[in-house]
Computed example of a mutant assay.
Amino acid sequence: MPHTPEPDEDDDFDLAPAPKPVHYAEQALLGALLLAPTRLADTEPLIAHDFDNHTHAALFTAIRTLPPPDPADHAKDTAWLNAVLDHARPHAPGLSASYLHALIQFCPQSKHAAAYARMIRADNARRILRGHAERLASTATDPGLPNPVATTLGLADDISRVLDALAEQFAPHPGPFPRTALPADVPRQAGEEDLDEERLLLATATAHPAEAQQMRWLTETDFLLPLHAALWQSITALVHRGDMVDPVTVLGEAQHRGLLTDSLTPKDLMALVSTPAGSPEYWGEKILKRAFLARAQTVAVRITAYTDDPANTPHQLITGSRGALADLNALRTRWNRATAPTIVSTASAPARSTPRPRAEPPHRPPVTPARAHR
Rank of each mutant, 00 (worst) to 15 (best):
H3I: 05
P5D: 12
D14Q: 14
V22E: 14
H23C: 08
Q27D: 00
G31M: 09
L33N: 04
D42H: 04
A57D: 02
A57M: 05
T61E: 08
T65C: 01
L66H: 09
P71R: 15
A72L: 13
L81S: 09
D86L: 10
A92G: 03
G94T: 03
L95Q: 06
A102R: 01
F106T: 08
A113P: 02
Y116C: 03
A117N: 06
M119S: 10
R121F: 04
R127T: 10
A140H: 04
T141V: 07
D142R: 11
D142W: 10
D142L: 13
T151D: 06
L155C: 12
E168P: 00
Q169G: 12
F170K: 11
P174C: 09
R179C: 14
L182R: 13
V186N: 08
L200H: 12
L202Q: 14
A210C: 10
T219K: 05
L224Q: 06
L225Q: 12
P226F: 11
P226K: 04
H228Q: 05
A229Y: 09
A229W: 11
S234P: 01
T236D: 03
V239K: 01
V245W: 03
P247C: 01
P247H: 07
E253W: 06
L259W: 07
L264I: 10
L272D: 01
V273A: 02
A277W: 00
P280E: 00
A291N: 00
F292N: 00
L293H: 03
A300L: 02
I318V: 08
A324P: 04
A326N: 12
A330S: 05
R332E: 04
A340D: 07
T342A: 02
V367Q: 13
V367T: 14
A370D: 09
H373D: 08
